[in-house]
Design a protein around this nucleic acid. Structure first.
Length: 553
RNA sequence: GGCCCCAUCGUCUAGCCUGGUCCAGGACACCUCCCUUUCAAGGAGGACACAUGGGUUCGAAUCCCAUUGGGGUCACCA
């Protein structure tokens, strides 16, 4: 067979925490590259670090990937994706495979046991640093031992790692995105390929799996660039093929810092400080844990804890992970589109496209070499365009699904008719699927529990001539006599009043109403707000508001 | 610090490979005005970049070199 082997890419996350947007973009590009060329896309779980990996994280990754519209041909089985002849796709379940190849390297003298403890290595590194020279581990650092001595040490149970005997030669990495780069001899040291706990290191597992799974193209973040040198020497030693490499530019925060969960902690600390919070509300975080966290800025809360705290205090945490963006009401297709634009472009002026377009157009030469700063404002703009241009029914459907998932209490309190009315009033002003829930809390509080912003009272109700209260009182009479509470009916009832009492300036009469109904100066258009609330609730709110007005009226 | 990589508006980028059509295009953000029922949105304008210095060339954003700046990496984490 001389036909070119079909293309095979893989996304290989380590299942700790949540799927980061950077990882999502890597997955997207790997997926698009393979699928656009009739190839195969693999999802492989790199769980060789026992301490950090969790099943929950693996499932979370799979879910996030599916939400983004990414499917995999081989990998863990999830919602119809995965399976395949090269399993297991969990590295922790492939230990015998790694051991076999480790054995071969050991037997041929290309790898050796090393017995230094973590502390000893740290001391060596420190010493090197003091002398201002780089530390590189080589076999010559360890005392010369005969085979029998090594065997005896092994026998005694002394912890040992296996190191690769890196050949003393320069290594050239051919990269489809960056071009080729040569790492000088001696830069790559005798790195560890098997840890003391018997698990292979990332370097070893990746090389073995990519070979065995038939991976032809390795697309990964640029932070792995130097690792490729290690992988190449390993491939040579094991007699493996060399895949084609492509290292993708990194994605940073606008200030150039790394996007990490630390960012959430920072915002949360700041928000809590501004609000003067010194103890956690019940049901959010354990008080002792909270106190410890507050004291030590280097520690971080669990994601669930910070999310609960932020929700309680109305603090908006920066989105970092894919599920953060989902929670915030971004559309998956928009996130994919925007992520693709960070590091790749189809050329020309086109920038709005879907995954199908990406699949058929993505290529390596057009990947940019420079790191990108993640611009949420532009993402938000894309999201709004997508939302406001979708059909109304689709919007209602998506908002309802979002509400069911993230705002069940809100959904319960609204009737179907009210919800539909709210959607009609909010569609064209929604930047996210979450906006409507965040900004219309006044709809779900009891009429007599509505808090009115004092600043709004002062400005809108007490101010003006006639005052807002006076308008409100007049409006209350008209509304009481109105039975048609449709948006059009309400408009017909109120507009004439605005004509006669405010010279046609609807704003003058709408704002007092808005404050009485919503407690603040921002709400959906006033006729919609009235209609959604309904006559009973709206008139009650106005009455309650009027009851608080100064006696001078 | 060693090694590797990179360098166009504030940001994401087009153009660069195959020098002239680029006094550098688009998008988001920003500014001004208009519209307006709050918040948004919308309409019309506007400001804004080839990091610097040397070459090569009739001609350079595009090719070469240096400087500066940025990033990555130097783990029994991936």
């Amino acid at each position: 067979m001389t036909a070119p082997a079909s293309i095979k890419t893989r996304f290989a996350p380590s299942p700790s925490g949540h799927l980061h947007v950077g990882g999502a973009r890597t997955a997207l590009f790997c997926w698009a590259y393979a699928k656009g060329r009739g190839g195969t896309f693999i999802l492989r779980i790199e769980d060789t670090d026992q301490k950090r990996s969790s099943d929950a994280a693996s499932i979370g990754f799979a879910k996030d990937l599916r939400w983004l519209g990414i499917d995999w041909d081989e990998g863990p089985e999830f919602e119809g994706c995965g399976g395949g002849p090269n399993g297991s796709y969990f590295q922790s379940q492939r230990l015998p495979i790694y051991e076999k190849h480790l054995r071969a390297l050991l037997d041929s003298g290309k790898a050796y046991y090393a017995f230094e403890t973590t502390e000893e290595l740290a001391a060596l590194r420190d010493a090197a640093k003091r002398e201002n020279r780089p530390f590189r581990y080589t076999a010559s650092l360890a005392p010369a031992r005969s085979e029998a001595e090594v065997a005896a040490l092994r026998e005694s149970g002394k912890p040992a790692v296996i190191r690769f005997r890196t050949p003393p030669a320069a290594i050239t990495i051919e990269d489809e995105i960056l071009g080729s780069a040569t790492i000088p001899a001696g830069e790559t040291d005798d790195f560890v390929i098997c840890k003391a706990d018997g698990f292979p290191t990332y370097h070893f597992a990746v090389v073995v799996d990519d070979e065995l799974m038939g991976v032809t193209h390795v697309l990964r973040a640029q932070e792995h660039f130097n690792n490729s040198a290690k992988h190449i020497v390993l491939q040579d030693a094991l007699g493996f093929r060399r895949p084609i490499y492509g290292h993708l530019p990194l994605i940073f925060n606008p200030d150039g810092s790394k996007m990490s969960k630390r960012d959430k902690d920072k915002v949360l600390r700041k928000g809590l400080a501004e609000k003067g919070v010194s103890a956690p509300p019940d049901g959010t975080v354990d008080p002792a844990r909270f106190a410890a966290w507050l004291k030590d800025k280097t520690t971080q809360l669990e994601l669930e804890e910070s999310t609960a705290l932020a929700a309680h205090f109305g603090i908006t945490l920066p989105e970092i992970n894919v599920d953060d963006f989902r929670r915030s009401g971004y559309l998956p297709e928009v996130l994919c589109n925007f992520l693709s634009l960070n590091g790749w472009s189809p050329g020309g002026d086109l920038e709005k496209f879907d995954n199908e377009f990406l699949r058929t157009h993505f290529d390596l030469p057009r990947v940019v070499k420079t790191p990108a700063k993640f611009d949420r404002a532009k993402l938000l703009s894309f999201n709004m365009t997508a939302i406001t241009t979708m059909p109304r029914d689709e919007f209602v459907r998506k908002v309802a699904a979002h509400g069911a998932a993230f705002h069940p209490r809100f959904m319960e309190k609204l009737s179907e008719g009210q919800f539909r009315g709210l959607c009609d009033a909010s569609h064209e002003r929604s930047k996210t699927l979450d906006d409507l829930f965040r900004t219309n809390g006044f709809l779900t509080v009891a009429d007599d529990a509505l808090l009115i912003d004092p600043k709004a009272v002062k400005k809108v109700l007490e101010g003006g001539s006639p005052t807002g209260y006076e308008h409100l009182k007049a409006l209350r009479e008209r509304l009481g006599a109105t039975d048609d509470w449709s948006v059009a009916g309400l408009e017909a009832a109120i507009k004439p009043y605005a004509e006669s009492a405010a010279g046609g300036n609807l704003g003058t009469v709408a704002q007092p109403l808005r404050v009485a109904l919503s407690g603040g100066t921002v709400s959906p258009p006033i006729f919609d707000t009235l209609a959604i609330l309904g006559k009973a609730s709206a008139t009650k709110r106005i009455d309650l508001c009027l009851a608080h007005c100064p006696a001078t009226l």
